[in-house]
C-alpha cells in the first residue's frame, strides 16, 4: 500500500516564509529572547526547532538554546501496538526551570503527542511558560490543546496523511497531503 500524493501544501519558499513569520511572532509575543528556549519533538520537530532558533538569532542576534525531546516513554498507547516504539532519547542541555519553552513539532493532529510532551517537560523542571509552535495544524483534536504559533492551518480528512519533508531528512523542503492507496 503505497501512499499517493494528493496535493502540495507548502513549497520550499512558503515553508521558509512560515518559519520566518513564526520566529517574528515568538520574538514579538515574548518581547525578545530573554529566557527563551526551544524544544523540538523527535524527529522533525527538532530540525524545525533548530531552524526557528536560527531565524530568531537572525532577528535578535542572540541564539536561544535548543533541545530534543523524545516522548516515547510518556505515550498513552504503549502496549496497544505490536512492538514497543523505539526510544530515541531526550537531550535537553539546559535547565528548563524558569524558561519560556517553545515546544516545536511538525504536525498537530489529535494533540496526544503534545499532552505527552507537556508531561515530559514538567518532569524535567518548572518552566515559566510553555508555548506551542506547529508547522501544520491539521485539526481533529482529541484533547483541549491549541497551538500559539501556526505555519499553516490545513483542513484534512482523518485518512489523509500530512507529510512534512525536510532537507535534513528527506532531501527537500516540502509539505504534501498523501492518501493511502486502497
Amino acid at each position: 500500500m503505497k501512499p499517493r500524493e494528493k496535493a502540495q501544501v507548502l513549497d520550499e519558499t512558503a515553508l521558509e516564509r512560515a518559519l520566518i513569520r513564526i520566529a517574528h511572532e515568538i520574538v514579538e509575543k515574548n518581547g525578545g529572547t530573554t529566557d527563551l528556549a526551544f524544544v523540538g519533538l523527535r524527529t522533525r520537530g527538532v530540525t524545525l526547532a533548530q531552524r526557528l532558533a536560527e531565524r530568531v538569532t537572525g532577528i535578535e542576534g542572540v541564539k536561544p538554546p535548543v533541545g530534543a525531546l523524545d516522548i516515547t516513554l510518556y505515550r498513552d498507547d504503549l502496549g496497544l501496538k505490536a512492538a514497543q516504539p523505539v526510544v530515541r532519547g531526550t537531550e535537553i542541555p539546559f535547565d528548563v526551570t524558569g524558561k519560556i519553552v517553545i515546544l516545536v513539532d511538525d504536525v498537530l493532529f489529535t494533540g496526544r503527542t503534545i499532552r505527552a510532551a507537556l508531561d515530559a517537560i514538567m518532569d524535567l523542571g518548572r518552566p515559566r511558560a510553555i508555548q506551542l509552535a506547529i508547522l501544520v495544524d491539521r485539526g481533529h483534536r482529541e484533547l483541549p490543546i491549541r497551538p500559539d504559533y501556526v505555519g499553516k492551518n490545513l483542513p484534512t480528512s482523518r485518512r489523509e496523511v500530512v507529510a512534512v519533508r525536510l532537507r535534513e531528512h528527506d532531501g527537500e523542503d516540502r509539505v504534501v497531503i498523501e492518501e493511502p492507496e486502497e
Binding site: L73, L78, G79, L80, K81, A82, A83, Q84, V87
Partner: peptide, 10 residues
C-alpha cells in the same frame, strides 16, 4: 523491561 512489557501486550 520496557521492550518486554510491550511484547507481552500482543
Amino acid at each position: 523491561l520496557y521492550l518486554l512489557a510491550g511484547a507481552r501486550a500482543q
